[in-house]
């Protein structure tokens, strides 16, 4: 019941949220002093030719009219075309989305699978040597700039040790396209050399993305576990002689995860933002790299398309997190 209310509520909020996001992004991208039309028209174009092209692209109209038309087209599922390549934005997005999704999903999995146990152990051995190491580790995870960390990883693991590829998603053509997720596709076509290549190419970018995400997860899990350890129900479970590991890994952990799961939703957003930098460094053919290119070139439709897709993704992920919350914590239901 509560689940249904939540979903309907989110759907109702979906449209105003996305609309607001589009209006803000549209305004910002259009007011920055850049003239992509002049650039597209080329160095030899005369002023008349530039203005003609501008009129042809509809960029000569007042901004609110342009915005209105953009939203109208978007509502019909039309993202427009790129100013430079004239390819439909929807095609660009569709081909790049899986690359970014694969990167972020693997990063979330890695950071959760390492971060949660680390947070628990750090909390139960509070103020031990291990706890201090973990805390230094998490603070650095939050403090280190990801582009710097990414380049450092490249220098060491790719250039110096030659353990991992320097950049890109795969060394060959990539596995046969089904889902666009190389790990999944190579498994589907049972191409183990492609699977290995895809996994190797993921290591450095995932490390870069997962490190700060893991730091957040460790901190929240640790705090949640410490909080639960001081609770009356843990005192009761100890006084009744429940086995220690069951108290920690069943009774405490589930309570601690309530806070952690909320964080995972927010982390997902941070990861997409982080992907912009990481994809640029690792030459990863995903949305982030695409967004950087579009912003540099003021490719309006591409910027808007990227914003729309990440906005929708963020809303969906947070809805999923809230649903997970209902299953973890019955008081929510």
């Amino acid at each position: 019941m509560r689940l249904l209310v939540l979903i309907i509520n989110r759907l109702l909020w979906f449209f105003p949220t996305i609309l607001g996001l589009m209006v803000i992004t549209f305004t910002i991208s259009h007011v920055i002093p850049a003239d992509p039309v002049a650039f597209v028209a080329g160095d030899n174009a005369t002023n008349e030719q530039i203005e003609a092209l501008r009129a042809q692209l509809g960029l000569d109209r007042p901004m609110h009219v342009q915005l209105f038309h953009y939203i109208l087209n978007l509502a019909r599922g039309d993202f427009g075309v790129s100013l430079y390549t004239l390819r439909p934005i929807s095609e660009d997005l569709a081909s790049r989305l899986p690359a970014t999704m694969e990167l972020t999903i693997v990063s979330v999995l890695v950071s959760t699978l390492i971060g949660v146990p680390l947070g628990v152990i750090s909390a139960i051995r509070r103020n031990s040597f291990l706890d201090h190491v973990v805390r230094v580790f998490t603070v650095s995870g939050l403090a280190i700039a990801s582009f710097w960390f990414a380049i450092l990883l490249q220098l060491f693991f790719a250039m110096e040790l030659d353990w991992t590829p320097l950049q890109g998603r795969t060394s060959g053509w990539g596995p046969e396209h089904v889902t666009g997720f190389f790990l999944v596709d190579s498994l589907l076509s049972w191409d183990l050399s492609e699977l290995r290549a895809a996994a190797l190419h993921l290591i450095l970018p995932v490390t870069t993305l997962a490190f700060p995400a893991m730091a957040t997860i460790v901190r929240f899990t640790r705090a949640g576990v410490l909080n639960a350890m001081n609770s009356n129900y843990v005192l009761y479970e100890e006084a009744m002689g429940f086995p220690k590991r069951v108290i920690i890994w069943k009774y405490i952990l589930r309570n601690a995860l309530i806070g952690t799961v909320t964080q995972i939703g927010l982390i997902f957003g941070i990861l997409i933002a982080g992907a912009v930098v990481v994809e640029a460094v690792f030459d990863w053919p995903g949305l982030g790299y695409y967004a950087v290119q579009s912003i540099i070139q003021s490719d309006y439709n591409a910027i808007m398309g990227f914003t729309f897709v990440t906005g929708v993704l963020f809303i969906i992920v947070n809805l999923l997190v809230d649903i997970a919350q209902i299953f973890i914590d019955p008081r929510e239901a």
Partner: peptide
């Protein structure tokens, strides 16, 4: 053991 506070002594989840 019977605890003081039956409200918070059950694991809520």
């Amino acid at each position: 053991f019977i605890p003081q506070d039956p409200f918070s002594s059950f694991n809520p989840v």
